[in-house]
């Protein structure tokens, strides 16, 4: 799956996200409107720009509430963006109407975290998968059953199970159904939102292998969201690290993990418990918690927790800038200037 040498110069951009914002207004009380207080927003995604290349697996990591799921859902237009552009193969889909989006929907599909709650319990697997085939008329009616069985086979499910209901499957099998559904329309772009987080360790590896095989075989472009850095490191070509609605660092997976440039990336990689009882001393600890996205700290969002914080960080928000080929960081004082790239 992830050949480490992923050549970006020869690949075209499938998705370009430019200065994308998704703000949710905070519910106002009567007192707020009487006192004419300003409308406050949760800035879940705040001025994010990134490109997703054809055939790559881009990881999106960050802690809960950092906006990674909102970003993904806005990109495939499950949410209406507040501002910004989303180019899918050059076409801006950021402000298209539902009707205009409909013919584009087959190109973008999603795999969800909890396989059970994302499958209708009253529909058989055959019905779940064939529903989209029929709606989007991608195969002639008499070939629908055949296509369903083909998809199930591709995802490691026996075609005999087509008549069964989601409740009759184990968690891993349910996720296979979810993947089969996402693949049914031959999408160009798949968003996998924590696809293995709800699964047991022994099942996780099966699903990761399946996603890897499918990506290779079908040349899929995947946006892989996860908080499990081990999994992300294994499966992705590039990684974007998010914190409070902002992309803090973006770069090729190996170089980013080996030599993080942003202090937050360093914290994240160090915080994951090491699988070695002989290595228990931590050279690095992080204090405090993620601030509320309503009361965002001024300047760099990470400055209250950052060990390298300076006056500049408290006043000025750093922009995401390129510090080496294919390496971007939003920090005034990147840890290693262009090292390890």
């Amino acid at each position: 799956m992830a050949d480490i040498q992923f050549d970006y110069t020869s690949r075209s951009k499938l998705v370009e996200v430019k200065d994308l914002c998704k703000w949710f207004p905070v519910k106002r009380t009567i007192a707020d409107s009487l006192l004419r207080r300003e409308v406050r927003y949760v800035k879940a995604v705040d001025h994010v720009s990134l490109d997703i290349y054809q055939g790559e697996c881009l990881g999106l990591v960050g802690e809960s509430g950092c906006g990674k799921s909102t970003l993904a859902r806005t990109i495939i237009r499950l949410y209406e963006p507040t501002s910004g552009e989303i180019l899918l193969e050059g076409t801006d889909i950021a402000h298209m109407s539902a009707r205009e989006l409909r013919p584009l929907r087959p190109h973008m599909q999603m795999i969800f975290q909890d396989p059970y709650s994302s499958l209708n319990p009253r529909m058989s697997v055959r019905a779940i998968i064939s529903e989209l085939l029929l709606y989007h008329h991608v195969v002639p009616k008499d070939q629908v059953d055949q296509r369903v069985e083909e998809l199930m086979g591709m995802c490691g499910l026996s075609a005999d199970y087509a008549g069964r209901y989601p409740g009759e499957f184990s968690g891993g099998q349910q996720q296979r159904v979810g993947i089969a559904r996402a693949l049914a329309l031959n999408p160009k772009f798949i968003i996998a939102d924590e696809p293995v987080s709800a699964l047991d360790v022994s099942i996780q590896a099966q699903i990761i292998n399946l996603l890897g095989d499918l990506q290779q075989k079908l040349g899929l472009t995947i946006l892989f969201i996860s908080h499990d850095l081990r999994v992300v490191r294994h499966i992705t070509h590039r990684v974007a690290v998010m914190y409070l609605g902002h992309v803090m660092e973006l770069g090729p997976t190996e170089t980013l993990f080996d030599g993080p440039c942003h202090p937050y990336t360093q914290v994240l990689t160090k915080a994951a418990p090491e699988m070695n009882p002989l290595k228990r001393t931590r050279e690095y600890a992080i204090e405090g918690e993620t601030p509320s996205p309503i009361h965002m700290p001024p300047g760099c969002r990470f400055h209250p927790r950052c060990p390298y914080c300076t006056d500049q960080c408290k006043a000025e928000m750093p922009e995401l800038r390129q510090i080496a080929p294919s390496r971007f960081v939003a920090c005034h004082h990147p840890l290693q200037k262009g090292a390890g790239v």
């Binding site: 480490i4 047991d200 022994s202 294994h234």
Partner: peptide, 12 residues
């Protein structure tokens, strides 16, 4: 990195 994982077949 990128190699197939040694998954445990089947489920509990």
């Amino acid at each position: 990195k990128g190699a197939r994982l040694n998954a445990i077949q089947g489920s509990p």
